[in-house]
Structure formats: C-alpha cells, structure tokens
Design a protein around this nucleic acid. Structure first.
Lengths: 224, 224
DNA sequence: TACTGTGAACGAATTCACAGCC
DNA sequence: GGCTGTGAATTCGTTCACAGTA
C-alpha cells in the first residue's frame, strides 16, 4: 500500500523558490496575518502569482479557492516539504576567509542546519578555535561524518586545487550532498548531489549583461 | 553599415559557462597544449561536447572541422566575448564576514575586475583599513561610483533588512549591475541587471535532493 | 464573486544526430 | 576519417487563461 504522504519529485527550480515563500510567510505571520492570496504572497517573495500557485500545487491542494492560503497551515506544509522536521548536519572544509564567512553565515547554523564540523588542511589553522569550535584536521573527516550521520552535507571552501581531493574524501566518508565554491568541475559517483556556486561567474554574467544594456539601450534588464 | 564585430546576444546560460572554458583553456595552455577537441575541452570544463560546441558556435566559427580548436586563438576570442579587454570596477557594500570574504576572494580583484570601494554603515567599521583599503561610509557611495564610472558593479553583502535601501542607493548613483547575497527580492527599475546568490537556498536544495536520493535509491544524482 | 488549481500554449535550454569540411 | 557547426527533436520551466469551487 502506498504511503499517504508520498509526494511527486519536486523540480530544482521549485525547491529553490520554496524557502523564499517560507521567508515571506514568516514575516506575514509575525505581523499577525492569518490568510493570504497567491498574489500577495508572490509579490512578497518576488515571483508571479501563477508561478507560486504552480509550485504550491505540486505539494497538494494547500489553499481554498476563492479565499486564499492560511499562513500557519501553509508554513508547516512547506516546512515538511523541505524536510525541515529534521536538522541536517553540515561540515565545512577549508577555513580561509570564504569558509569563515560561510561558517558564520546565518543561514548555515540554525534554520534547519547545524554546523557540526570545521576542518582544514593547514597545521597553523588546525587546533585553533573558530566561532567557538575547534578546527579539526581534514584527515579526521571520516570520524566527524561518522558521528554526524549519513545525512551530512559537505561544503567545500578550499582553493580549486584541493577541491577534487576534498570531494573524494567527503564521498568516501559517506557524504551524499556537496556544496562547492571552488571553480573546479567535481567528479563524483552517480547518486551524489553536487551544487556549485562560482562567484566570479556571477560577476562576469553581470558584467556581460550590463555591457549589453549599454550597447542596446532598448533591451530591458533581466532579473536573476 | 553594420559593424563587423557585431555579435548576437548570448544567453545567460552560455555566458555563465564561458568562464569555465577559459579556465580549462588556461590550464591547457600552461601545459603547452596548442590544439584541443571539443570533447577534451568539454570534459575539462565539466560539460558535454555538444554543449560546448553550441556555446562556441554562437561566437562565430572558432574551430576547424576535423581538427579542433587552437587554444591560443580560442582563448583570446573568449576574452573578447566576455569583455575582458576592459577592467570592470566593483564596489562592495557591507563588510561583515561575508563582505570581507567576497572582498578578498580571488575572483573579485584581478581577472578583469577591480575592487574600487568598500563601504559600510557601521561607524565602528567606517575608517578602518581592510585589505589595504579604507572603508568608507555608505553615504559616500555616489562619489565612489562617480569616480569609478558608470560600468561599476555593485555587490550587496548587507543583512536582508538593509538590502533594498542599498540597492536604491546603488541605482541612484548610476550602477546598472547588482550582485546581492541578501535573501530579499530586490525591486529595481527596468534596465538594471540583478543577480541573487542565496547560500541557504542552495543548502536547502542539496538537503532536499539528498533526502530524495535516500528515499528512492534508484534515482541518479543530478549535477548542478 | 474571488481566488485556487491546472491543462494547454509558449519559450528557453539541452541533447541528438548528421551534414559539411579539413 | 575525424571533428566542427547546426537544424531538428526533446526536455524543462514559465506563463496564460479558464474551469472549478468555497
């Protein structure tokens, strides 16, 4: 028999938008608003109302036709859909400035995630205390992940030259989801989720787009 | 008469990939490789060969059928297409840990970009020297941008609550391209290019995908 | 009446597969 | 023969427009 809570797979694009709906709902809820239309919520989240309804409809029938959505109920539905019932452990490898920024970034500790390990390669950094936590040697990674469990997410904040080695280490330690900031294409086995954020690619895209706008004043700006 | 160098508009997706081709070419060039096939270059950049050929063909006919691409020539073609003949000035607003990490990130200073201004709101931070540069008050932003010129790219590394105000300030100072790390949907006039990088959305996507993999072991991992 | 949920239309991006050229 | 360049097919994401329902 099929589980009643079974859900179809959500697209990446949808999952990337759900958190903004959650944020928008939280500020509405803080103001004591009980009900909201797709139009209002979409505006607050920076998308179109059709987009929002399409996304939400994939989670089931969460609203009431002719009325709208109930903020409290919708919030908990989104929490469940995003799997925020459980806290996901995160390990950060590489504690240069970027790793440090990530480690202290609000969205990483709290809100459903918990940083459970900071690791580095540099003997000068290993053993120091960063953000109230001892930095461990990257060779201890298997133990750190073993303690944290198989749902651990690995963050690669090393220079590009070390990224592949770190990724291999993460995978062999049992990590199945990796967020990398290195501009190196990571090779990982089938079944491992990888997401790459490359800040310089983003900058270059902006440089290109704003140059194009200057050359063709008629072209409208495109939002990200 | 039409300029000989006129190019059709490139898609965002293509522009985001060009830098990785450039990186891959650079390491080939460093090893003294003179020629390369789409298959080899694509593998090095982490994409399919069809994808790479499609992207490059939009810049013109850069390769030789039956032979491949000449690394040196392709490199300079890509540099020109990405507009790296000119250095783009960058101002960074918000010097918390994230702003600091960005400011010192390799990809931002050098490689066609130059950080020309660090600004913050906090009186405790304004006036201090960060990375060999004096942090200025965010109210000086109009002057900083005026000096740097209209091609300046603005980076918003403030908390979400200040992001819209900073964006307004950037726009009124003449900035036409904004990269924001705040999880707030920015409202900007038509013609302004905006790109949002939200680290916690990326983490959540990974959390979702790796959970889905666990639930359906047959599903393959999807690459970013 | 007002607003959701959704099929259908549309558009963008990627992959396929092969014609064209060295 | 081998590899590029590219139309065609496909897949994916978004928007449209309206049927359905409190």
């Amino acid at each position: 028999m099929v589980e009643a809570t079974e859900r179809r797979e959500l697209s990446d694009a949808t999952v990337l938008r759900l958190p903004s709906y959650l944020d928008a709902l939280d500020s509405l809820r803080a103001r004591g608003v009980r009900g909201v239309s797709s139009e209002e919520l979409a505006t607050a989240a920076g998308v179109t109302s059709a987009m929002l309804r399409k996304d939400l409809s994939q989670l089931g029938s969460l609203g009431v036709r002719g009325v709208g959505y109930e903020t409290e109920a919708l919030r908990s539905q989104l929490m469940t859909a995003l799997g925020r019932d459980a806290v996901r452990p995160v390990v950060i490898v590489g504690l240069g400035r970027l790793g440090l920024a990530i480690a202290s970034h609000g969205g990483f500790d709290g809100d459903g995630f918990e940083v459970v390990g900071l690791l580095d390669h540099d003997p000068q950094v290993v053993g120091t205390t960063v953000l109230g936590r001892e930095v461990r040697d990257v060779r201890d990674l298997p133990q750190v992940v073993a303690v944290a469990g198989p749902g651990t997410i690995g963050v690669v904040a090393t220079p590009g030259s070390a990224a592949q080695d770190v990724a291999d280490l993460l995978v062999s330690a049992g990590v199945r989801a990796i967020l990398t900031f290195a501009p190196t294409p990571l090779r990982v086995p089938e079944g491992i989720a990888v997401r790459e954020v490359d800040l310089s690619c983003e900058l270059r895209l902006l440089a290109y787009r704003s140059r194009a706008v200057a050359a063709h004043p008629t072209a409208g700006g495109v939002r990200a």
